[in-house]
Write a protein that binds this DNA or RNA. Structure first.
Lengths: 337, 337
DNA sequence: TTGAAAGCGCTAACAC
DNA sequence: GTGTTAGCGCTTTCAA
């Protein structure tokens, strides 16, 4: 037996008693079931209002077998990309009456599986952003998580919608832009080695190089943050490149800031590109050339897929790849002669 | 009767049957109750593993009368301030085994009350950031939301912990800094009229002006975003002021960007201050002088308060005011002579 | 130490 | 149209 609460919250039974009807009738009224006589319905509504009745959604969830909540697992709530995904999911889900439970793995990827499972137990489904989780782990985990939607994974998982941006194409487009402006020595300021989205960029650049044998490309280890870009400045300058392809906007901004401190002119001496087009990219000095990934929309689309699965749609789109769009701004220019 | 699901999820009953014990025993084992014989416990664990049993947390919540989840209501998931609060709450709550449900009112303040109530029904408590909600509405709402923790409200509400930053003092400190550098004509690039935190800044500036009769202060309408700051540039220039106190960092950055486009030198011709010290503030050009509000910590503290209330602590701290700290960077300098 | 049974708050099938 | 009742999956009291 559950706790004998001394002063329970108002429940459906209290309203039923107050209105002099059965609790089934109260339930009907609360759910807008019209098979209740108008006068009785009114009496029930009055009683509910008098008692300030708030339906208990846990009871409701148990009876209905659904929570109207989905979990979103992100590696880092501090990263604008994941904030944007979360925002997109949250808004789209809210329009359909669903709420979002957040699970932030704080970049501890060993936690992701646990968090995701935990989230799934409380929710009707989970949207998983786990860019660094090993493919094998993901495949093991997936069945227990279903309904599951994946974001930014290249791994196809059976019966699991997956949304991602074409980082490979985006970085090629940026490289092409630099080459068109006369740059022949490029450097890739890389993201985390194990990250799927970094691998896609690397692969894209490999393809690009095959088609542009005259271009030279180096790689400098970077990271995902301002600080990573800031710290990489020496290695970038040492590379002798005239064009820098940064892993993302954050890294590019850190680099821009360090270059400014060193008195290096951008794009006069060095052109720099970012990736993502975070809101701040248009406010840096100089403004940042980047490949825009409509990441909030990607979050919204993730909800569409989840919603389709929850509705039991027969043919949910499984693979979705969004094409980034190159945005030319002030941080790139012709190669110095 | 609930839906006759054709293929239910594995429940405690399945594990009980498989292990040849009652479901009460399974429950005891799953909850680490030691009053179960070691061999039986092992058998149960084995059965649970075989069946890949995942305890259903809705059932658990109903029996226990708690969800181990708290709701966080924010006006805008796009705003770095609220992202940081959310992050602070989420991480602190996670450490105590609680999860966070997000409710984004998308700046529609009429939605806040509904969202908050809705969140409360699904959660054990709610942390409310509703800077524009009218005091009276908040007081009406509070009892139904309890346990409730308020963020950035100056309204005291009975029995409700409230955390806020001392925006009034922070803006005075920034103004003092400008005056110390010789500025005599200041302009406040204001936030939203009805926002409590804007009113605190206004009040702070009034106090400041009383103590500095030689200083002239104008007010220009602004907003909360980049765009607002960017658009205000003409009004700012028209004011003839040499020092600008922007409502927050975002607004300051938008203004900085517009000033850069106009070729106005900062801080040579105009000094600009922000507020909040968002992560990007140290990477603008020039870097932004601002008043740092440790907002993630504020989120963490909000969880501490909530946690205390949930534990039934007798004397929870109700009012907490965090002092912003002025961070001097490159966007402010001596008044032009 | 274990099982039977009640109850958490709600929905819905069924009978009237 | 409305009430009775079973059941969602779990915890916990009580009795054995």
């Amino acid at each position: 037996m559950a706790k004998r609460a001394p002063s329970r919250r108002i429940g459906i039974a209290d309203v039923a008693k107050q209105a002099g009807v059965s609790h089934a009738t109260v339930s009907r009224v609360m759910n807008g079931n019209f098979s209740v006589a108008a006068d009785i319905a009114e009496r029930v509504r009055q009683a509910a209002a008098d008692l300030k009745y708030q339906p208990n959604s846990v009871g409701r969830s148990l009876a209905l077998g659904k929570t109207d909540t989905i979990g979103v697992v992100v590696p880092d709530l501090e990263n604008p990309t994941f904030q944007a995904i979360l925002r997109g999911v949250s808004r789209a889900a809210a329009r359909d009456g669903y709420r979002v439970l957040i699970a932030d793995s704080s970049e501890v990827s060993s936690e992701e599986a646990i968090l995701a499972g935990e989230a799934r137990r409380r929710c009707d489904g989970v949207i998983l952003c786990a860019p660094r989780m090993a493919d094998a782990d993901l495949r093991d985990l997936a069945p227990a998580l279903h309904p599951l939607v994946l974001i930014n994974r290249s791994t196809p998982v059976e019966d699991t919608p997956c949304l991602s941006a074409d980082y490979g194409q985006g970085i090629q487009d940026l490289a092409a832009h630099l080459v068109a402006r006369g740059h022949r020595r490029l450097v890739f300021l890389a993201g985390p080695e194990p990250s799927a989205s970094n691998r896609l960029r690397v692969r894209g650049l490999e393809l690009f190089m095959e088609q542009h044998p005259a271009v030279e490309l180096q790689t400098v280890p970077g990271g995902v943050s301002f600080a990573a870009g800031h710290e990489a400045v020496d290695a970038i300058l040492a590379s002798g490149a005239t064009g820098v392809l940064a892993f993302n906007d954050l890294v590019a901004m850190g680099l821009l800031s360090a270059l400014h401190e060193r008195g290096i002119s951008v794009p006069g001496q060095l052109s720099v590109t970012g990736f993502d087009d975070i809101p701040f990219a248009r406010y840096t000095t100089p403004t940042l050339t980047t490949a825009a990934v409509p990441i909030t929309e990607l979050g919204e689309m993730a909800w569409q897929r989840m919603s389709a699965v929850l509705r039991g749609d027969e043919d949910v789109v499984l693979g979705t790849v969004i094409q980034p769009e190159v945005i030319l701004r002030g941080s790139t220019g012709p190669a110095p002669s």
